[in-house]
C-alpha cells in the first residue's frame, strides 16, 4: 500500500474561491520514500501540506495518509503523522528539554521510549537542553523542531520548507538526518524552494502556481529533457547572455552559475554558435555539453 495517495486535490481561497492555491494535484508516495515537493514561494506547497496534515479541508479531490482519509479519519492521521511547519513553531519561552517533554506527553509517549529515533539529532542540541528555545540559533531550532516532530515515531513525516533560510552546511546536515530516518522506515514528504536539493530525494514533483509540472525520480525528470544544453562562458558574462538570447538557433538562454545555459533548437551546431559568438566579440570563450539539471527542467516546464 502506498503511504500517501493524492487524487485531484484542489484548494481555493477568498470570498468567491477566486484564489486557486492548489489545482487538481495527484501523486503517490511509497513507504520509506523521501518525496520532494520542489517549487518557489507561493507555489501552493504549504496549502498542500496543510491539507494532508488535516489542517485544511480540500475543496475537491481526496487523499489518504497511511490508509486514512484526510477528511473522514483526521483523528487517526493526527495520531500517526509528524509535522514541521515552515516557520519555527515551538514554544520560545520553554527550554529545549521542556519543549521535547511537552510534545512527548501530548502524543502519550516519553522521550525515553523513542530516544533511539531522535538520538542522532537530539545529541547535538542536548548540551543546550536548559536553554530557552527562543535563544537557539537557526540550525539548532531546526534540530529541536525535528526532534519534536519525531518524538512519537510517526509513520509519515511532513516537513514544510525545513531548509529555507538555513545555510549550506546546516542544509547538508539536515539532509543527512533525513536519509537516516528513511532507513528507519519513515516516509518523508519534504518541500523546498532549493532546486539543488531535488537530487537528494528519491522522487520529486515540481510545483508552480498550484500545479504539478512533473513528477518522478530526479533522473526521470532530467532524462525527459531531450534538447541539447550547451554551457557557455566568456570574459563578459552579461554581454554573452545578451548575445545568446539574440541567436536564432537558441530556444532559451539563462545564467546558470559559472556557465550560461543555452537550450539549443534542433539541427543547431556547436561550431556555428562558437563562430557567431566570436564574431560578436566574446573573449575567452568556452563551450561545453551540459547534462540537464532539475533547475533546467523546471525552467523549461515553467516557460512552456
Amino acid at each position: 500500500m502506498q503511504s500517501v495517495i493524492v487524487n485531484n486535490l484542489s484548494k481555493n481561497y477568498g470570498k468567491e474561491k477566486e484564489i486557486k492555491a492548489v489545482k487538481d494535484v495527484s501523486f503517490d508516495v511509497s513507504p520509506a520514500e523521501i518525496f520532494g515537493i520542489i517549487g518557489p514561494d507561493g507555489a501552493g506547497k504549504t496549502s498542500l501540506f496543510r491539507m494532508l496534515t488535516t489542517l485544511l479541508l480540500p475543496d475537491s479531490g481526496n487523499a489518504s495518509v497511511d490508509g486514512s482519509d484526510i477528511v473522514k479519519d483526521f483523528k487517526a492521521i493526527r495520531k500517526k503523522v509528524g509535522y514541521m511547519p515552515g516557520r519555527f513553531s515551538l514554544y520560545q519561552d520553554l527550554s529545549v528539554e521542556e519543549n521535547l517533554n511537552f510534545f512527548a506527553t501530548i502524543f502519550n509517549t516519553t522521550i525515553e521510549k523513542n530516544y533511539d529515533l531522535i538520538k542522532d539529532i537530539y545529541i547535538q542540541i542536548e548540551p543546550f537542553k536548559k536553554r530557552k528555545a527562543g535563544k537557539l540559533s537557526g540550525g539548532m531550532k531546526q534540530k529541536l523542531a525535528l526532534s519534536c516532530a519525531l518524538i512519537h515515531r510517526p509513520v509519515v513525516l511532513f516537513l514544510d520548507e525545513p531548509t529555507t533560510g538555513v545555510d549550506a552546511v546546516s542544509r547538508k546536515e539536515f539532509w543527512d538526518m533525513l536519509k537516516r530516518l528513511k532507513q528507519q522506515g519513515i516516509t518523508i514528504l519534504v518541500s523546498t524552494p532549493y532546486m539543488d536539493e531535488a537530487g537528494l530525494c528519491d522522487r520529486i514533483t515540481l510545483m508552480q502556481q498550484g500545479k504539478l509540472l512533473s513528477t518522478g525520480t530526479p533522473t526521470e525528470i532530467t532524462g525527459s529533457f531531450k534538447q541539447t544544453i550547451l554551457g557557455v562562458k566568456a570574459a563578459n558574462m552579461y554581454d554573452l547572455l545578451k548575445d545568446l538570447n539574440a541567436y536564432n538557433a537558441i530556444e532559451d538562454a539563462y545564467a546558470f552559475g559559472e556557465y550560461h545555459h543555452a537550450v539549443m533548437k534542433e539541427n543547431s551546431s556547436e561550431e556555428a554558435l562558437q563562430k557567431y559568438l566570436e564574431e560578436k566579440g566574446n573573449k575567452e570563450l568556452v563551450i561545453q555539453q551540459i547534462k540537464p539539471t532539475i533547475e533546467d527542467s523546471f525552467l523549461r516546464l515553467m516557460k512552456s
Binding site: 518557489p40 514561494d41 529555507t164 524552494p193 515553467m302
Partner: peptide
Amino acid sequence: EPTGGVDPVTRREFW
C-alpha cells in the same frame, strides 16, 4: 538575501 524563495525564472530576471 534578495532572492530567498523566489522561483528560478524570476531569480534570473532579478540578477
